[in-house]
């Protein structure tokens, strides 16, 4: 009977012990649903995304929503004062969250957020990077790999061009951004394992 849900997509890490597991899950679902809808709305605006098959649109979103949320909500992880702001607006320190049962994923999220924010990307760059994160042809269950790959390449080219234009003296930024993709996969895997463990409990 774990009493905490240490995910910032929740309004608060505290779980009402009177509530059943199903009720806790329902409440959590209501909390993150608007964020997931925003990811879908974002995807719909990526030029070419709506031209993919419906099956592939769903597959990309199912596989990539967590990673997109990590990028979009990197600022919830304050590396200076080592706090995480939950969707309810309250900040919790790393020590507090650790005492609530947060594990390695928390540290990894801090590391990722710090490195991403330190790149100092503007909104347009971040948005294009997020599109690259979402449109990945190697996600499982993609039926038309060629179409997704073509869109992915177009987006990567656009990102490189934008970064080169905006940061002419910092050519490493584009490489650093691409290296964030495997980091996000790793965070996604860790998160899936924690979700599974939570469900088992």
């Amino acid at each position: 009977n774990r009493m905490h849900l240490v995910c910032p997509m929740n309004t608060s890490p505290h779980v009402d012990p009177q509530k059943s597991g199903h009720e806790v899950w329902e409440e959590f679902s209501h909390s993150f649903t608007p964020a997931v809808r925003e990811v879908v709305e974002f995807a719909k605006k990526i030029p070419g995304f709506r031209d993919l098959t419906q099956h592939d649109q769903v597959s990309l979103l199912k596989a990539g929503t967590f990673e997109v949320l990590v990028v979009r909500f990197a600022s919830l992880f304050d590396v200076t004062d080592r706090t995480v702001t939950f969707l309810g607006g309250k900040k919790y320190s790393v020590d507090t969250l650790r005492a609530m049962g947060a594990g390695d994923l928390l540290n990894s999220m801090f590391d990722f957020s710090e490195k991403l924010i330190n790149l100092g990307l503007c909104e347009e760059e971040m948005s294009l990077f997020t599109a690259v994160v979402l449109v990945s042809a190697d996600r499982s269950g993609i039926e038309n790999v060629n179409s997704v790959e073509a869109l992915q390449e177009t987006l990567i080219r656009a990102l490189r061009s934008l970064i080169t234009k905006n940061h002419p003296n910092e050519s490493a930024i584009f490489t650093k951004l691409l290296l964030k993709l495997p980091d996000l996969r790793s965070l996604n895997n860790m998160h899936s394992e924690e979700l599974l463990a939570f469900k088992v409990h």
């Binding site: 899950w25 993150f32 997931v36 769903v58 199912k62 596989a63 996604n188 979700l195």
Partner: peptide, 27 residues
Amino acid sequence: FSDPANNLGLEDIIRKALMGNLEERPE
């Protein structure tokens, strides 16, 4: 949210949002 077993109902949320759930849109 990889949610392979759709435990979080993620696929349902995504499908509804993709199709444009008119019922949930403000007037």
